[in-house]
């Protein structure tokens, strides 16, 4: 077969990032299949909802992380920023602020941390790794200092609404007076994740800021010469990542109905892993929100399935580590030919 014929034939196959996403999706389905065979409890509505809930926190972080990674950067601070945002919200509520404004200010806190990351990276010319590593320590330190490392509890039932509520939940009162859940509903965190993922994908694919994010990661100098405001674009990406960290902090703390200043440790690594499994390149210029969502679910399903199969948390780390390396390795093999 001649080269051109071969190419014409191959055109129908997905190429590049589409292929990566497809293989990630197949991996996800295979994982679900395998765990379902291993444990009957895995493939149930309730467990599905548990996975959804668990994944929504990492998923929210991964949306922002993907944007930052596409610019060619990294954000190591999201786990700590998540905690700090929660602490700010908790303290504001203790000071008498209602839930909604307190949560909004929590998200703003995350955004401010991200904005500071962006300033340090662009104006002080500190590499993203170092700048966000610094913010990781600073945000955690502030969160622990503000609370004296103690959790903030008794925040009221409304605080738990975002993390524990669900849409279309059907509850029936039984004769004995106890409520019976007929359909658990779609958890609010999952709906929030869906909305933010769609919004993030829209920004990346259809808006100028998304185009600029890709151009900065692809060739920063070319972007600058073309008239892209490189600094503004980077600051935007880090601010978005910080705000999403704040939002995921709201979800997580609300689910616990308690603010834990030491929550979210190492979450940044799960978010980075989700992006990378989903096809984002740490060299910049490549990545997608949809891929990162698949990546987040691969990690979520792996964690949940391994838990149900009784695998220890330590072995889970080992397996996820192997998956991350495997995903990147496969991607490299594909790019090399």
């Amino acid at each position: 077969m001649s080269d051109t014929e071969l190419k014409a034939k191959l055109r129908f196959l997905p190429t590049g990032s589409a292929l990566h996403k497809l293989s990630a999706l197949i991996t996800l389905l295979l994982l679900i299949l395998a765990f379902s065979i291993m444990s009957s409890a895995f493939f149930s509505v309730n467990n599905g909802l548990t996975v959804l809930l668990q994944t929504s926190v990492i998923g929210l972080l991964a949306i922002g992380m993907t944007m930052v990674i596409i610019t060619g950067g990294i954000d190591l601070s999201v786990g700590s920023v998540l905690a700090l945002s929660g602490v700010v919200t908790g303290l504001l509520m203790k000071a008498g602020l209602p839930v909604m404004p307190a949560m909004a200010l929590g998200v703003v806190t995350g955004g401010v941390c991200g904005f500071l990351n962006g300033l340090v990276i662009t104006k002080m010319r500190i590499t993203p790794f170092v700048a966000t590593l610094g913010m990781m320590m600073i945000a955690r330190g502030v969160a622990l200092q503000l609370t004296g490392a103690a959790p903030i509890s008794r925040l009221g039932e409304t605080f738990g609404w975002l993390g524990n509520g669900a849409l279309f939940r059907v509850v029936e009162m039984q004769a004995n007076g106890f409520p019976k859940v007929i359909f658990p509903g779609i958890p609010y965190p999952a709906i929030l994740l869906l909305i933010m993922a769609l919004f993030g994908a829209y920004l990346l694919q259809r808006r100028q800021i998304g185009r600029h994010i890709f151009s900065v990661g692809s060739n920063e100098e070319a972007a600058r010469l073309s008239g892209v405001n490189v600094d503004r674009t980077k600051i935007w990406a880090y601010t978005a990542s910080g705000a999403l960290a704040g939002l995921s902090g709201m979800v997580l703390m609300s689910r616990l109905v308690t603010v834990q200043p030491n929550e979210g440790v190492m979450y940044e690594l799960d978010a980075i892993a989700a992006s990378v499994i989903g096809g984002a390149s740490l060299m910049g210029g490549v990545g997608s929100v949809s891929g990162s969502m698949i990546g987040a679910f691969i990690i979520g399903v792996l964690r949940n399935g391994l838990n149900m199969a009784g695998t220890s948390a330590f072995i889970q780390q080992v397996i996820i580590g192997v998956v991350v390396i495997g995903a990147v390795y496969l991607d490299q093999i594909r790019n090399r030919k």
Binding site: R206, Q208, N219, E221, A222, A223
Partner: peptide
């Protein structure tokens, strides 16, 4: 026209041509 061409490798020809000066629809979409 720069000696180094100044193109963003991951973007296509149209995206490069309009980089920094993207055409937008009424709603501000690309």
């Amino acid at each position: 026209i720069y000696q180094t061409l100044a193109l963003a490798d991951h973007l296509d020809a149209a995206a490069n041509l309009f980089l920094g000066r993207e055409l937008k629809t009424r709603f501000g979409n690309l």
